[in-house]
């Protein structure tokens, strides 16, 4: 079986700088795949190259075993959920969903429109105009509009960015659930590592137009390939060139038992975070380390001498 989507040495320059610097990627069918990276890393450009809004300077885009370079957007079996949703303001929710079906000359559209709106639980709002819908509802219409075409790959460009924080967290679960139910490959672009980690089957971490690492959420978080990947996916304590996540960094007043590595340090300050206490300690080498400990173990005063220690298997090593 062909992969849903394959990119080969994709290259795209904007005046002055490369936006996508020769990336290759293969995305298997039927999962939720994330492109994660800071803003300006080229992830949105990659999405636009796949959708056909832009043509690469060189390299190939393969969709389900077919080369689609040079094909205009309307002749590619992918569909995009835009960051702004780009719903047509002059059409109702139902007519927005029907738009693509009519362009493809598909008969019996009403039934499919209805099914797509039911899929996103918006069947009752079919006759509403976008201006009469809430932000979350608009997003679902945008999803239904793309899903009704049953694309090979659904491209989502920061689809949660425009929602308020509470709704955003809820939509993560719903999006993931939706992907499971329809079985269509989702390619999800985000700069939010928490979003990518919680939703994806696999993540490609991008930086400055290149892909640094591809892997499952566990792999990229626990065994990052580069320092920048490690840093982008979460906070890191750098001790003697070794990386340590704050949640596996321990602090105590006594030296730990054997099997553990430890360093002497001084507490600089403690911060109450609600669900835990964060302690900033300075090692004798001058490096800072942050540890997150439970509220019961967090009773330290600034200036107190402590031991910073960790389990060797939690160390992150880099070349």
């Amino acid at each position: 079986m062909h992969p849903s989507l394959e990119l080969r040495n994709l290259l795209k320059h904007y005046p002055g700088h490369p936006a996508v610097n020769g990336i290759s990627l293969s995305i298997p069918k039927g999962g939720l795949f994330s492109l994660l990276g800071p803003s300006g890393c080229g992830k949105t450009t990659t999405l636009r190259l796949i959708a056909g809004f832009e043509e690469p300077a060189s390299g190939e885009v393969w969709l389900n075993g077919e080369l689609v370079n040079g094909r205009p957007p309307y002749a590619r079996n992918v569909s995009t959920v835009f960051q702004s949703y780009a719903l047509f303001p002059h059409l109702t929710a139902g007519a927005n969903v029907e738009f693509g079906l009519r362009e493809r000359g598909i008969a019996q559209r009403d039934k499919r429109v209805r099914a797509a709106l039911e899929l996103v639980e918006l069947a009752s709002k079919e006759a509403r105009y976008p201006a009469q819908l809430s932000g979350g509802e608009r997003q679902r219409v945008a999803l239904a509009r793309s899903l009704v075409l049953e694309p090979e790959v659904l491209l989502l460009d920061e689809p949660l960015a425009a929602l308020d924080p509470k709704l955003r967290k809820q939509m993560r679960v719903e999006l993931k659930d939706l992907q499971r139910r329809v079985g269509i490959t989702f390619l999800f672009v985000t700069h939010d590592q928490e979003e990518a980690l919680s939703m994806s089957d696999a993540i490609a971490v991008m930086n400055q137009g290149s892909i640094d690492q591809v892997g499952t959420p566990e792999e990229v978080y626990l065994r990052p390939a580069t320092r920048s990947v490690a840093g982008f996916l979460g906070a890191v304590n750098w001790i003697d060139g070794i990386g340590l996540r704050p949640e596996v960094t321990r602090i105590s007043r006594s030296t730990p038992t054997n099997g553990y590595t430890g360093r002497a340090a001084t507490v600089v300050r403690t911060v109450f975070l609600g669900n835990c206490i964060q302690i900033l300690a300075r090692l004798e080498t001058g490096e800072d380390a942050v540890a997150e400990v439970s509220r019961a173990d967090g009773d330290y005063r600034p200036g107190e001498a402590v031991q910073v220690w960790w389990n060797q298997s939690d160390e992150m090593h880099f070349r």
Partner: peptide
């Protein structure tokens, strides 16, 4: 006019003339 509306039209299968008259 939001340019992404035109992209959305093309994305949903509308050729330039169809996008012109429908969007």
């Amino acid at each position: 006019m939001d340019p992404s509306l035109l992209e959305a039209a093309a994305d949903l299968g509308a050729r330039p003339w169809a996008a012109f008259f429908r969007v």
